[in-house]
Design a protein around this nucleic acid. Structure first.
Length: 332
DNA sequence: AAAACATGGCTAC
DNA sequence: TAGCCCTGTTTTG
């Protein structure tokens, strides 16, 4: 599934295209009929991402909470205003985006600021169809509007001009404001929601108190939000940290460094739409990595291959019921 | 062509 | 610990 960066991008897409508009909700699949009815016909007022979860607020005070899980995806169709980086990630927009450009750090898009601030618009809406999951891709350019639902569509959000279909989510439910707050309170800090020293302190303190291996702590969404299996492996390699090291055994600077690096990688991920973890690349190397996943990571999915730094064979083991990739030499 | 696998995480057993 | 969500991609035959 999409790790944290994708969910932030999807929330922006909703802020861009739905916030401020009346929305018709339905459940073509039939498994969310009651929930859809609670929100149907109301205007969307806010789109938020917190770690891997997304929250859409409507003007009756209720929220739609969505977690994509492993297979979940959103398909957008219609006259879509796209964040330029989405098209860029597909290589369709030429040079509109280069790394190094700044996000303004505004993770939430609220009603009065939707459509401006951090979203770099292409300009006019474009009639298209885009799938947003871990990868984003344009599906086709034409067709009737709204399109026929494809596959098991749990919920469809429809305005006069734009349609969003949700398929295969782990979670899709209607919550009131207090329930949303409870979910958010349980989540660990998300660098895009809070890049304050307090957030870094909180993460650092929690990690350095626990005997749990850091490789498990980074995946624990109550410790830190948004990190998944790819970012876990890559963050640990970049920090030179052994995944088995207990949180409490790590130096304070090391843990703070992990937080800051996560903030950096998440920012790059939101900007490019890719889990680009070899961010020191330049020119042709960067372009190749943007195109091919195999050239994008230090250790992820590289078991048995020589470490890009020291040549040692990359190891693969199970940790937290997920595949963990690491270099026993660089991460001694 | 078919089968296995995966960026997650909840729930039931 | 296994199932589920039920899709897209990769690997196997």
């Amino acid at each position: 599934m999409p790790e944290g960066h994708s969910v932030h991008r999807i929330a922006r897409q909703f802020a861009r295209n739905f916030v401020g508009h009346r929305v018709q909700l339905s459940s073509p699949q039939g498994r969310f009929v009651e929930g859809a009815a609670l929100l149907d016909g109301h205007a969307m007022t806010r789109a938020r991402a917190v770690g891997k979860q997304m929250f859409l607020e409507f003007d009756n005070g209720l929220w739609l909470r969505v977690h994509l899980g492993m297979y979940g995806a959103w398909d957008f169709a219609g006259d879509i205003l796209m964040d330029a980086t989405i098209a860029s990630a597909n290589g369709r927009m030429g040079q509109t985006n280069q790394r190094g450009t700044d996000l303004d750090g505004q993770a939430d898009a609220v009603l009065d600021s939707a459509g401006e601030n951090s979203l770099r618009s292409i300009g006019a809406p474009r009639r298209t169809r885009v799938r947003m999951a871990e990868q984003e891709k344009e599906i086709d350019q034409r067709g009737t509007f709204p399109p026929e639902p494809v596959g098991q569509v749990r919920v469809r959000l429809l305005t006069d001009t734009v349609c969003a279909d949700l398929r295969g989510p782990t979670a899709c439910q209607v919550l009131d404001a207090a329930e949303v707050q409870a979910v958010i309170d349980k989540a660990g800090p998300d660098p895009l929601l809070d890049d304050s020293p307090a957030a870094e302190d909180r993460f650092t303190a929690v990690v350095r108190r626990k005997p749990t291996p850091i490789g498990l702590l980074l995946m624990d969404q109550s410790v830190v939000s948004g990190i998944g299996n790819v970012y876990r492996a890559e963050l640990l390699f970049r920090a030179g940290v052994n995944p088995h090291a207990p949180g409490k055994s790590l130096a304070e600077d090391t843990v703070r460094g992990l937080w800051r690096d996560w903030s950096r990688l998440l920012t790059i991920g939101v900007e490019t739409g890719q889990m680009m973890t070899m961010d020191d690349l330049a020119g042709a190397d960067w372009a190749r990595a943007m195109k091919n996943r195999a050239d994008r990571h230090w250790v992820y999915k590289r078991e048995g291959l020589p470490c890009r730094v020291c040549g040692t064979h990359i190891l693969l083991e199970e940790m937290g019921a997920r595949k963990l990739y690491w270099c026993p030499t660089c991460q001694a």
